[in-house]
Design a binder for these strands. Structure first.
Length: 980
RNA sequence: GGGCGAUUAGCUCAGUGGUAGAGCGCUUCGUUCACAUCGAAGAUGUCAGCGGUUCAAAUCCGUUAUCGCCCA
């Protein structure tokens, strides 16, 4: 049956996926021929996710490694699974409910979770099919899920991942590595949950800075002196206030102090005194102390900073250091609090605290609602406006003139100094100089929730934390000692930097979808941490318990991915065999989120590293290097790419892009190029088929014993490329492996070997050549299989007798013993001659179809032997009709020089003599230039003395070759001139 | 502000000390039976600038410029 002209990727891919599945080709341990294990855990995609280019890239690399090891006979596992993605999944399901006009809170927690599981059963498997389309050889029978085995999990979700998560929490709690505490956390007012530092994106946005006066208590005054850089006095006045700058006026309500730098002389006279917060009912104005702290920057704003410990991270630090009370102002939706006692009462208590008459416990401070009654219940931005208006109305805003450039766009523009245009009317002085509040227009960094995209509110709340400082040591040591290697190396530096400055990790989330924290409280608030309620109840001796409603950060559970997917805490066979895993392949953007946390957690829990190598890669960008985003419209859908070019082309592109630390720019032109490469391979095999190469062929691990140089040569080239590919893959240089295979398959096999074979199929070497070609093409399929599994599996099935799948083909181990230096040198010479003839013909515009006679002016013994052995190849590929030895070149000949000889193509009257002369001169000049450089080096005695011998020898050899070539060219030029 | 990285052909990128490569694009020619998703031939570089180390620097060191990414 004749092969089609092209590989039909669309139909073949689906068929081959089914074939692999039917054969169980990717089950753990499939094709095992040795005891060494090789295991990779997939970075679990979100259960809500669908395949994007990042996944496609990441999983292509993993699949290459996995297929390579499986073919090499390792006991291989590629573990699949999905992450339950707390916020994202809850969001998706809530959105579904919203379509029916329902809210999460219309359901009980259990009923809502049932809805989530229902959704998961219907839509949670999308990415599995998509990974299969990419050709990923995961062991799907082991598919894991980070919520498997949780209470309420339906049938089919009976795994024990939940047990692992709960066990780890309890263990870490008992070891004192997890604690509950009131700390400032990033609060997402949309999802009404805390999130970790890493889930916050700081984005520069347009903002404003207001300047307000905080009057000194009791009408006190001081002399305020401000100097410029040279020390000259620029302000010297009596003041009864301290000037504060803020970007968040609404938080003034919760101020606990005003801080200045200890070295700031301007405020030295009033440090320790009290000032008044200029908001709220006049009769209940709160007084707060003026304190010193290293945090305020004397050069920024007025140099004085208001301290709102409950709503700002920096202020929190100051408040902690100085024992300043922290008053929470907002509720879970970032609206001003409406709970607790009336403002007058709360303000009185806060006043007593400020005067040092009493202190507050954390809980008492948190219960105190210092939002004035008329602002209660307002959104934070509405409250901001009200605060600003009230202060300004009272005359306590710092004023400036309307033309002050600090006002930005709001400033009145001064009239142009020269040539006012028709519209550039003079702005009257009274308008320019009118007093207005100083509201600076400036860029501020604002925190946004990476999921909700709303402004994050720093909020003082009770949360659970991992005391990361206590578990970071072993994670650092593992990398420092080299037990875990992170690639590229720059990743290690980043890793150190983050871990050395680690902050407590907030792991509680105020969500329903996730692993509920295994802690119960009795009526006195005492905590009982246990794996089950029964065990907690046993500890609590008859007290009535309620469970902590919060769930754990999704990353806490995915931090256990390596052991959790292998059945831990049960001591399974798989755990014994496949843990620690071989390598983790993931994006550098989750180095902290996930990689570092897996390191910390695995080491803390089972005292072992989770993986030996970490391969980090960047973001896949568009062809111009821009991030792919929906708003830019430059998102490339991998499934569309697969539809258009085939999965193999996409995969090969991914491999070719994957240089260590490289930037990933995805260009469809490049994908098209690699699709062409698959076609090239296809057609080489088709050519072989048409020439009976596969007839009677069965898979052979060893190459045939070849006599013909050309066959010995291609066998040697195959051996060399196998060594290159293995060396590259061993170092995760996917791009080098791809490049080597591309150059070999296209540049050596298709461009030369197939062409060389054509004239041999009829001669005495026919049988040997067919056997060699079958073997070489087999090797192409095998070596390309990890990168291009579909077309290679298809070709494998269409050619020869196969005992097993290409996916299970034996990866070759041959190397140096097949490298035939003699054959390689000879074929290099033959190719040089053919290229010389072709180049000369093309440059002198000899018609391609014309077969020429060739004369041999002189040729050394090696050349004569090479030519006689390969004459059929030369005559076919250089289009030579006859060869004859001559004593001198006939008039009007083209000259072709080769190593050890000169040939001529007599073409009197056909060619342009001047053009031929130019060509020879140019070639000669090039050789001369190179020769000059090398001779210059050799003339330097220091070079000869210091450089390694082989470099010097190489230079000397090159001089000989170049000298000889130039002599031949000169002779040819002289000959041309003498005839002309 | 701190950390990490990049700058090589028109474009996208390889290149860890021995005198610079690939793919795409471009130019010319060509449908002889594997392939026009092809073949043959060809042109193309102050390796960002400056300084240093070295017999030798795209490569190592320092510095400047520009551009990224991460963290404040």
């Amino acid at each position: 049956m004749a092969m089609d002209k092209n590989f039909d990727a669309t139909t073949a891919e689906a068929r081959i996926v089914a074939l692999w599945d039917r054969e169980g080709a990717f089950a753990a341990g499939a094709n095992k021929r040795r005891d060494d294990a090789f295991s990779i855990m997939i970075p679990p995609p979100n259960v809500t996710g669908s395949l994007h280019m990042g996944h496609a890239f990441n999983n292509t690399l993993q699949d290459i490694l996995v297929r390579w090891h499986r073919m090499r006979g390792f006991d291989t596992l590629w573990q699949p699974g999905q992450d339950h993605a707390g916020i994202a999944t809850q969001m998706v399901v809530e959105r579904e409910l919203a379509k029916e006009g329902k809210k999460r809170t219309d359901f009980t927690r259990e009923a809502f979770l049932a809805k989530v599981w229902e959704w998961k059963a219907q839509s949670g498997g999308t990415i599995i099919g998509q990974l299969q389309r990419l050709g990923c050889s995961l062991d799907w029978s082991r598919n894991a899920f980070t919520m498997s085995g949780a209470p309420g999990a339906p049938s089919g979700e009976e795994g024990n991942f939940h047990d692992a998560v709960i066990k780890v929490f309890v263990d870490m709690y008992n070891k004192g590595l997890i604690y509950r505490g009131k700390r400032l956390v990033n609060w997402d007012p949309h999802f009404e949950t805390a999130i970790s530092d890493l889930e916050v994106e700081n984005i520069e946005t347009d903002g404003h800075m207001w300047h307000f006066k905080y009057p000194l208590a009791g009408g006190a005054t001081y002399r305020y002196i401000e100097k410029d850089k040279e020390g000259a006095v620029i302000v010297d006045e009596m003041r009864d206030y301290i000037s504060i700058a803020t970007t968040r006026p609404e938080t003034m309500l919760g101020d606990g102090a005003v801080a200045v730098h200890p070295s700031d002389e301007r405020y030295a006279p009033i440090v320790g005194k009290l000032c008044e917060i200029p908001v709220g009912p006049k009769e209940h104005r709160r007084l707060i102390p003026i304190i010193t702290d290293e945090y305020p920057d004397p050069l920024f704003g007025s140099g004085a900073v208001k301290i709102t410990g409950a709503h700002d991270a920096n202020d929190y630090g100051v408040a902690k250091r100085s024992g300043i009370p922290m008053y929470r102002l907002m509720d879970t939706r970032a609206q001003m609090r409406a709970d607790g006692a009336a403002y007058a009462e709360a303000a009185a208590i806060a006043g007593a605290v400020a005067r040092g008459e009493r202190t507050l416990s954390e809980a008492e401070a948190d219960a105190l609602n210092l939002v004035p009654d008329h602002l209660r219940g307002l959104d934070r931005y509405a409250a901001r406006k009200a605060v600003i208006d009230e202060i300004t109305a009272e005359g306590l805003a710092v004023m400036t003139v309307a033309s002050d450039p600090r006002l930005g766009a709001a400033a009145v523009k001064p009239a142009p100094a020269t040539a006012p245009g028709p519209l550039g009317q003079e702005v009257p002085d009274q308008v320019r100089d009118a007093p207005v509040p100083l509201v600076e227009e400036k860029k501020i960094m604002q925190p946004f929730g990476d999921r909700s995209k709303v402004v994050i509110e720093p909020m003082l709340t009770d949360q659970w934390f991992v005391d990361a400082e206590k578990v970071v040591g072993p994670a650092l040591d593992a990398v420092r000692s080299g037990r875990v290697k992170i690639m590229p190396e720059s990743g290690e530096k980043t890793y150190y930097h983050w871990l050395e400055n680690i902050e407590p990790w907030c792991i509680s989330r105020q969500l329903w979808w996730g692993h509920q924290i295994p802690v119960w409280y009795d009526e006195d608030g005492k905590m009982y941490c246990a794996p089950t309620e029964t065990e907690a109840q046993d500890m609590a001796l008859g007290k009535r318990l309620t469970r902590d409603p919060d769930v754990l950060d999704t990353w806490f559970s995915s931090g256990l991915w390596p052991i959790g997917t292998l059945g831990w805490p049960e001591q399974t066979d798989e755990l014994q065999k496949y843990f620690p895993t071989s390598v983790l392949v993931t994006g550098q953007d989750i180095l902290f989120f996930w990689v570092a946390r897996m390191m910390m957690m695995q080491l803390a829990v089972v005292d072992q590293i989770p993986f030996h190598h970490v391969y980090l890669h960047g973001l896949v960008r568009d062809a111009k290097g821009k991030k792919m985003s929906k708003s830019l419209g430059n998102v490339v859908d991998p499934l569309e790419i697969i539809d258009e070019y085939g999965a193999d082309a996409l995969r090969f592109t991914n491999a070719a892009m994957a240089s260590l630390g490289g930037v990933l720019k995805l260009d469809t032109q490049r994908i098209a190029g690699y699709r062409n490469f698959t076609t090239k391979l296809w057609n080489a095999c088709r050519f072989a088929e048409m020439n009976g190469v596969w007839e009677g062929h069965a898979t052979q691990s060893a190459p045939p014993a070849a006599q013909a140089t050309v066959n010995r040569w291609i066998i040697a080239e195959t051996a060399r490329v196998r060594e290159t590919v293995d060396a590259a893959l061993a170092e995760y240089r996917f791009n080098d492996a791809a490049q080597a295979l591309y150059a070999f398959v296209w540049g050596k096999v298709c461009d030369w070997y197939v062409e060389f074979a054509k004239p041999l199929f009829d001669g005495e070497d026919a049988a040997e050549t067919r056997a060699t070609m079958a073997w070489v093409l087999d090797q192409c399929m095998v070596l390309l299989h990890p990168m291009m599994p579909f077309i290679t599996e298809e070709l494998w099935g269409l050619t020869g007798q196969r005992d097993k799948l290409c996916a299970h083909a034996d990866w070759p181990e041959y190397g140096a013993e097949l490298v035939d230096a003699e054959a390689m040198r000879e074929m290099r010479w033959v190719i040089g001659l053919i290229e010389g003839v072709r180049s000369a013909r093309a440059q002198l515009r000899v018609p391609v179809g014309l077969k020429l006679n060739m004369v041999q002016l002189d040729l050394d013994m090696q050349g004569r032997a090479a030519l006689s052995r390969n004459m059929a190849l030369v005559t076919k590929l250089a289009r030579i009709a006859s060869l004859e030895e001559v004593g001198s070149l006939p008039k009007g000949s083209i000259t072709v020089t080769v190593e050890g000889g000169t040939f001529g193509l007599p073409l009197e009257g056909v060619i342009d003599i001047a053009a031929e002369r130019d060509r020879l001169e140019k070639t000669c000049a090039k050789a001369e230039k190179e020769l000059g450089g090398i001779e210059g080096r050799l003339r330097n005695p220091k070079f000869v003395a210091s450089a390694p011998d082989e470099v010097v020898d190489e230079a000397r050899a090159r001089v000989l070759v170049l000298t000889e070539e130039m002599a031949r060219l000169r002779a040819a030029i002289t000959q041309l001139d003498s005839v002309a």
